[in-house]
Write a protein that binds this DNA or RNA. Structure first.
Lengths: 241, 241
DNA sequence: ACAGCTTCAATTGTCTGACAAATGATTTCT
DNA sequence: AGAAATCATTTGTCAGACAATTGAAGCTGT
């Protein structure tokens, strides 16, 4: 690990980089314990607070975890897909809200990626995935459900569809696209009529996935995209009035 | 912004969460200046180092930037897609290396997503995207190119293809999938024969994109996926010997 | 000998106070 | 008026200290 630092750049940044590089290139193994903060501040010739700031940077990215106590310290994290989901979703959400990405662009991205997963899901989904999809459809047809609840169930349905593809890399990539859009979806008020329509399309999708009919699933997803965008347009139009 | 903290969780974590929430829900606007570290430590009733650790966490996620000097301080960052690429790629790379995702799974995810972009790219790509693809193909056919150079050019080619879809959300999502796989690709030695094959397929893809023939592009991408996986299998087989 | 308790040492979490460095604003001088 | 020096503000870094946590070693009573 590089221990000589430049002047003129923040020390904590450089230390974080050095440790991150060591993790990426394998010098530091998963679950390996880093030197204590005192040892690190010796090694880099900086004070403990500076080392700590560097470690906090890494902790924020889930690269390390720290524990107190005699056998405590900082340990290299095994970055799990589930942990990365959270970051992915936060980042995607912020990207959408800060860059004035319009709903249609986000929606297009989401459904494009989802349609790509459909064939794999039709082929590989387990009974579990299918059961989740059916259960969420059932929840969506209950009349007492709030709009937020409806959206959350929608997300769960689509995640089951994506997970059915059985490719964790795909699931990870899609998590951002599918979940980040939820806040935008929440601005839509779902009338009984439109819920009925969405539930019908979800049923169509689940049927297609169950039957292994990839094409049919893609067609239903395309219809759902079109319908979702038309709903959003209605909201936008009624807001202008 | 919440300023009362619990006792049993790390203070810097809670402070970072409070500020992050304020950014996400819009209490803090892009480019707005946060209170100075001294003011924050007053507000939260903690010491300055603790506030600083919180700020470093946020800086690591590109949510804020800090500047010294009289008019300095911490400012809410407009999170740009380009900035997010870096995080996305680092995270994806670590996920692949730490979770022992095999090459075929990663490759499948990448090409599945890329094929999803192809129809949009065939429809919307500008002359610029096409020119980049052609230029990279040309570079790839030069004999002096190293394997690393070949891989890098491959990534550039595919990014141009994805960017051609004209959807920044898609480009962002795909950046991780396309670039994170590069280290894995680098383990493959590309013979003159296999380079020729890949260049031929790239040309086929570029031709299809130029002609607006979405289907043809998807077929060529599928062929490229199959070929890439077969190359990786050869490497794995020869390693076993 | 062994289970349970106590003590201990190592480590992170937090605080206080201080100084250095950068940088825009202000004042002063020509 | 314009340029140079000074100032005030803010972040970056440091030193040293104490609190809280926690596994391990040692001790004790049976």
């Amino acid at each position: 690990m590089k221990t000589d630092l430049e002047t003129n750049r923040e020390l904590s940044v450089q230390i974080a980089e050095a440790i991150r590089d060591a993790i990426i290139n394998g010098t530091l193994i998963v679950d390996e314990r880093l030197p204590s903060e005192a040892e690190l501040s010796d090694k880099f010739n900086v004070s403990r607070p500076t080392v700590r700031e560097a470690l906090k940077r890494l902790a924020a990215q889930n690269l390390i975890r720290t524990m107190r106590g005699a056998t405590g310290g900082a340990f290299v994290n095994r970055l799990r897909f589930e942990d990365a989901y959270g970051q992915q979703i936060t980042t995607s959400t912020l990207l959408l809200s800060m860059n004035e990405v319009d709903f249609e662009t986000a929606c297009e991205a989401r459904f494009t990626l989802e349609r790509a997963c459909a064939p794999l899901s039709a082929q590989r989904r387990t009974g579990d995935h299918l059961a989740t999809m059916r259960a969420e459809i059932h929840r969506q047809s209950q009349s007492g459900l709030s709009d937020e609840g409806f959206c959350a169930s929608d997300v769960a349905f689509h995640r089951a569809l994506v997970d059915g593809a059985g490719n964790p890399v795909l699931s990870y990539q899609l998590a951002g696209a599918v979940e980040a859009i939820e806040p935008l979806m929440n601005m839509i008020t779902f009338s009984a009529r439109s819920r009925e329509q969405i539930v019908a399309l979800h049923t169509e999708i689940a049927d297609a996935i169950e039957a292994g009919a990839a094409n049919q699933a893609e067609i239903a997803l395309k219809a759902l995209e079109t319908y979702t965008i038309s709903l959003a347009r209605d909201v936008a139009a009624s807001k202008r009035d």
